[in-house]
Each structure stands twice: as C-alpha cells, then as structure tokens.
C-alpha cells in the first residue's frame, strides 16, 4: 500500500476512518481508457441513509460497483465497515438496478428472495424450508407475501423492485448499496421502500442509495454525496445541500438546475 501520500499528515495514521461505514480513498475507476471516477475521497458515517446524486454518467453506479468489487479500480482503496470489502461480504447487501436482469427468468418472487441467502447456505447445498421461511418474512416486510409464488415477469415494475429489496433484507447486512431503487416505481412502492430504509437506519444499518430525483432527495435522505466524475460534496444533508454544490454537480444543464432550484424551494417548505 502507498504509505507516502502527498498529504503529510496522513503519515500519522491510516487513510481510512475505521468508524465510517464506507471509506473511499483516492479511488479512480475507468472503463476502457475513459475515467468514470477521478480521485474519489469519501467517508460515509454509519447509521445514515445516504443519497448518491449526480447527472447521468457521473459515475454513481460505478462508485457502488467499485465499492462492492464488481468492477476493478484503477487505483485507490475502499474500506467497508472499517475492513477490506472482501472480508465483510456477509455484512454487505446489494440491490442492483432493476433493468440489469432479465425478468423473464423462470423463478418465483420467493426464489429470487432466497438468492439473498446463497452465501449463508454455501456451495453445493440446496435451499431448505427454513431459508424459504426467512425469505417469506422479508417478502412480507415489503408487502408482497401474497405474490411469493408468482413468476417474476408477472409482477409490476414496482413489485419487482420490492422483490429485489426483500432479497437484500434477507441478507441481514449492516451496510446496503442500492442502485436506483426508486427509479420508475409506483407511489405505493416508493412509500414501502422508504419505510424499509428508515427501519434499517433506525436499527443502526447504513444504506447508500443511488438516486436520480432531486425533488425527493432532500426529504428522503439524511446524508448527501454529490458526484460528477469527481466528488463535489459529501456531508449531512443540511450542510451539503447548497445551490453552489448543486450547480457544481449539474454544471450547465439548465433544466436540471431549474429542477434543483424548484426542488430546493419545495423541500424547504416540506422540511419537518
């Protein structure tokens, strides 16, 4: 590991905050030769619901995937829950983008939720009754107990998203990464997901959510990461949510800026 950093004060200790849920240091990720994330330095504390926000192509999903070790990093290091990501896999849950899989696949909602237990079940062993029972509890938590036996292509988009959430819940992780769980879901699903996120946070878990909707971001989350290839800002929602930061994140995208402005006005009014 690189001990000699350009910052001299980092010599006194590790670059990573051991108490943070996520600690990213100097991470650069590239597809082919095009860097998607540049020199990312970021800490997210435990016990928050954090939003990762930025324009399309800002590297939001990439950040999550690199943290999980799904794509290689060009440089830098990541600590999850204070440890090497590979050694805490059992404590880290993941909700991929709904579009990333083929929903025609011949499995039921319950089968999909059971997948969250595969690591615990281990190689070569089948899914047993107690695993299915645990999966049913998770399905019930997202309000889909009645749909357990239904083939997943016969669920609505929102229900599919909730199946993915239930699969993550059954992992009983301390840290969750969710890639656009609120993307094009119905109102009922949005409420259900939000409720689950808050339960997780109240139980001391950390949830990192890639989010695209500026309108709701301020209301839903208590930590904000603004990303546009580089880190623009990261901090508690009240501090990080500033016009300057949003402008720096979205640059010249005028319509988005207007959205942001309106969102800020509305969210300000909504603030509890």
């Amino acid at each position: 590991m690189s001990v000699q950093r350009r910052k001299s004060d980092s010599a006194i200790g590790p670059e990573h905050d051991p108490d943070a849920a996520i600690s990213i240091h100097d991470m650069t990720v590239a597809y082919q030769r095009r860097p998607v994330l540049w020199d990312l330095d970021l800490d997210i504390p435990r016990g928050v619901i954090a939003a990762v926000i930025g324009p399309n192509g800002a590297g939001k999903s990439t950040m999550i995937k690199a943290c999980l070790g799904l794509i290689p990093k060009l440089s830098g290091s990541v600590r999850l829950l204070g440890q090497d990501p590979r050694s805490v896999r059992g404590q880290v849950g993941y909700v991929p983008q709904r579009e990333s899989v083929d929903w025609e696949f011949p499995v039921s909602a319950l089968d999909v939720v059971c997948m969250g237990l595969y690591r615990r079940i281990g190689w070569f062993r089948p899914v047993r009754r107690r695993h299915r029972d645990a999966a049913m509890v998770a399905l019930d938590r997202v309000g889909l107990a009645d749909f357990a036996k239904r083939q997943i292509s016969r669920l609505s988009g929102g229900q599919q998203q909730r199946v993915f959430l239930a699969r993550a819940l059954v992992q009983e992780a301390d840290l969750y990464f969710m890639d656009e769980p609120f993307a094009s879901v119905d109102a009922a699903t949005e409420t259900a997901i939000l409720e689950v996120l808050r339960e997780l946070r109240d139980a001391g878990r950390t949830v990192v959510v890639v989010h695209h909707d500026l309108q709701t971001a301020r209301e839903y989350f208590d930590w904000l990461v603004l990303l546009n290839t580089r880190l623009v800002a990261s901090g508690a929602m009240q501090e990080a949510w500033t016009p300057d930061h949003l402008r720096a994140t979205y640059g010249g995208r005028l319509t988005l800026l207007e959205d942001a402005g309106r969102a800020m006005g509305e969210a300000g009014g909504l603030k509890q």
Partner: peptide, 22 residues
C-alpha cells in the same frame, strides 16, 4: 445438481452473485 442454485443465480443476476462473493 450440486451447483444448481449457484448456476441459476449466475444466469439470473451475475452482479448480485459477485456481490455475494461468488
């Protein structure tokens, strides 16, 4: 037969399989 569930997961959701450390 031995790898049934893991091959199924590989086919359905490669990314999630990898996140489990598979």
């Amino acid at each position: 037969v031995l790898l049934f569930k893991d091959l199924g997961l590989l086919c359905f959701d490669e990314g999630f399989a990898a996140s489990l450390g598979r």
